[in-house]
Write a protein that binds this DNA or RNA. Structure first.
Lengths: 184, 184
DNA sequence: TAGAACATGTAACGGGTTACATGATTTG
DNA sequence: CAAATCATGTAACCCGTTACATGTTCTA
């Protein structure tokens, strides 16, 4: 049987909800799993063609704008079912800012502070986004417990990152980061 | 100028402290940055040969056990200096367990619970390890603020993951995870 | 003296990333 | 009617992963 990678398997997962075009899958995947499973449009189109070749999805007729809906086949469902029951491996993290900090002694202090500061805003935005999504989700009945769980992970993760960033202030940057935050 | 990737650049960073063999770099890198920058021995040996070809490191004479010490060259220092002042990009996370949760509705509940549970112990162990390292580090004078900072990130991250895992108990698994934790 | 840990690599594959090309439809 | 967005893809490169091969030195 065709050996699925996690990216391809996720596409099959989404296709359980019904036929979708490559573009649909791009947006779906990026919004639903994109925050903890990086993927690009190129990858998705490539995986779709190999899934089609392997018979796990089937391409439909071209619609307007050349949209081509893919639907999951019985083999696709079987392959997904076999994939999803496998024990997930550990997470891999690649955090360039932590490399900058690790090698901090080779970096001017202002530079390191500016790196930390510019990453802070991105994390703050993501946290705000998660909070908004969270309120929306819990307002719905019934609430999807799985969506809530991954959102909750996002909240905790971003809170941890932000509190770490802010703690750096005390440990090696004195008051410079905090002062800078209050500027434009 | 030779364009460094973060993995190769990190090797150059470590070589600032003096010549090291491939094996030395493998252990050094895995202990110092391995928790937030995944790398394998194969990769390190390959990067070392391309760095040597590019003249950024220089291989010394073979020592016992075929150890071959590499030292950083002036060009290597220049390349590292150019790399380290670049703005670090955002982190990428690939967290298979979150995929399992996302697609949780296609998974028997016991299965999902067992996945969560088996990952919990790994995170607990890593947290314990960080706590030990932390005590050792703050006992030293002077304390390396950069090492302390990355260790602190590790602590916060693992605490966040563990508290998230434990919160899953309430949200969709009732008492099953907690009960299971008290078993062997 | 056997097995564990040390030590160095090569080969091949898969897949993530980046860059590029092309055109259709909607909206201001 | 121009710009933005939608939409689909290809090509190439780089790099991360896995599997394998080989030999050495320490230690129980």
């Amino acid at each position: 049987m065709y050996k699925l990678n996690a990216t391809a398997a996720s596409l099959l997962g989404f296709l359980h909800e019904g036929p979708m075009s490559g573009w649909d899958l791009v947006t779906k995947a990026q919004t639903v799993i994109g925050d903890f499973w990086s993927l690009t449009p190129s990858q998705i189109y490539r995986e779709l063609s190999s899934l089609a070749t392997a018979g796990l999805v089937q391409a439909g007729e071209r619609e307007q704008r050349d949209r081509r809906p893919f639907s999951i086949t019985a083999e696709g469902r079987a392959a997904f079912a076999a994939w999803i029951i496998q024990e997930p491996s550990e997470e891999t993290i690649r955090f360039p800012l932590l490399l900058s900090v690790s090698f901090g002694k080779y970096l001017p202090k202002e530079k390191l502070i500016s790196f930390v500061r510019s990453q802070r805003s991105g994390h703050q935005q993501r946290l705000d986004g998660y909070r908004q999504q969270h309120s929306k989700l819990i307002a719905q009945h019934p609430t999807d417990p799985y969506a809530l769980a991954i959102l909750d992970f996002g909240l905790r993760y971003e809170e941890a990152v932000l509190s770490w960033i802010d703690s750096l202030t005390e440990s090696f940057s004195t008051a410079e980061i905090r002062a800078a935050e209050n500027e434009p």
